[in-house]
Design a protein around this nucleic acid. Structure first.
Length: 368
DNA sequence: TATACGTGGCA
DNA sequence: TTGCCAAGTAT
């Protein structure tokens, strides 16, 4: 395996970063950083958690909303969990939001609103793992921690043309990352590796012709860089199905309930729904309704999750009286002014949209 | 070590 | 349309 000179590598990468870095809302530019401005650990942590498995484009608006509503960690710690979940709605991986809130409370109560400053201590916090602890330690506290995310995995497997498939290659990648991480500007180095992965060393059609570290790269010389990283084959994604029941009160309010606090969409809101079982034996039809009403078919929706595809029958009932629910289901009525503030995951927004479309069509038919 | 856990964009 | 991908963590 070819050896890379770490000093020469980080010098070349950081010089490129100084000129070509992305400006992002949670970042301190290398110029400001050199002038002594330190990143706010709260904003670094919040952005890193949001960015877990999530694109920069999707995160920007949420980061803006969160930092405006909760400017400091104490504000976030004092917020009800339901407020955090509803603000997170649409961003996905909702355990992140529950852990975010738990982490804020821990830092508030146990650390006096100050984040611990080492990767080892950060890693003990909820929702902070190998990657995030290293990123916060490097970016906010100048610890030369090896920051290994998907970008770094891609860059390093190409640098050394690593034929070992992921995830088996992770230990080798980590070792190489530790070799390359400099004591000087470790935070900028981590962000530079990610910018390189995002702008030059991209998953498809990498721009090797303008790469600032191409002289260190084996893949660009001996083969197509795009071959790397090599990955194990994925299993096929199964299908599941179920039914959702959207009850409208006469004033247009919708009946919602809260999902269990852990597991799929944990703690989020939904119209009452069946479990999601294998496609063949999914409980469907109006017999599965949570309470009696004049249930009408409102079509089906499809939604792709990470590990299964879901088809949901949508049922709708109009002019439902509160007495019809009769305490059979724990939940609440959400009026038109409240619905936008509910913690509705995207799949449930699709359900409500299908039901609302059916309701407005039925309403038009009644009028004509 | 393998699996559960969301969503939106792109080819 | 389908599959892959994007700054991972918890169990």
């Amino acid at each position: 395996m070819p050896t890379i000179d770490p000093t020469a590598f980080s010098t070349a990468l950081l010089a490129w970063y100084d000129d070509h870095h992305r400006d992002l809302p949670w970042r301190v530019s290398p110029r400001d950083r050199a002038a002594g401005r330190k990143p706010d650990p709260y904003r670094v942590w919040l952005s890193e958690v949001m960015l877990q498995q999530t694109t920069v484009a999707a995160v920007k608006a949420y980061f803006e909303t969160f930092t405006r509503r909760w400017p400091q960690i104490a504000n976030l710690a004092q917020a009800p969990e339901s407020d955090v979940l509803s603000a997170w709605a649409g961003l996905g991986y909702y355990a992140r939001a529950r852990n975010l809130h738990a982490c804020a409370r821990t830092v508030h109560a146990a650390y006096g609103d100050r984040f611990p400053e080492t990767a080892a201590a950060l890693k003990a916090l909820p929702g902070v793992g190998d990657y995030t602890s290293a990123a916060i330690a490097a970016i906010a506290f100048d610890e030369p921690a090896a920051v290994v995310d998907g970008n770094v995995e891609r860059v390093i497997t190409r640098l050394i043309a690593l034929e070992t498939p992921l995830p088996r290659a992770k230990p080798q990648i980590r070792h190489q990352a530790e070799q390359l991480t400099p004591d000087h500007r470790p935070g900028d180095f981590a962000q530079a590796m990610m910018d390189l992965g995002a702008m030059i060393c991209t998953p498809r059609r990498p721009a090797c012709g303008i790469c600032p570290v191409d002289v260190f790269c084996t893949a660009t010389r001996t083969a197509k860089a795009e071959r790397f990283p090599i990955k194990e084959k994925k299993k096929p994604i199964p299908e599941r199905s179920g039914a959702a029941f959207v009850a409208f009160r006469r004033d247009g309010a919708v009946f919602l309930r809260q999902r269990p606090g852990s597991g799929m969409l944990g703690g989020m809101s939904e119209p009452p729904s069946t479990d999601w079982s294998a496609r063949t034996d999914g409980a469907t039809g109006r017999d599965a309704a949570p309470f009696s009403a004049d249930w009408q078919q409102a079509g089906t929706i499809e939604h792709g999750f990470t590990h299964f595809r879901l088809t949901l029958e949508v049922w709708r009932a109009d002019d439902v009286a509160e007495a019809a629910v009769g305490g059979r289901v724990a939940g609440w009525w959400s009026g038109p002014d409240q619905i936008d503030g509910e913690a509705l995951p995207t799949v449930m927004k699709k359900v409500l949209k299908a039901a609302t479309r059916g309701r407005s069509e039925a309403s038009r038919r009644r009028k004509t």
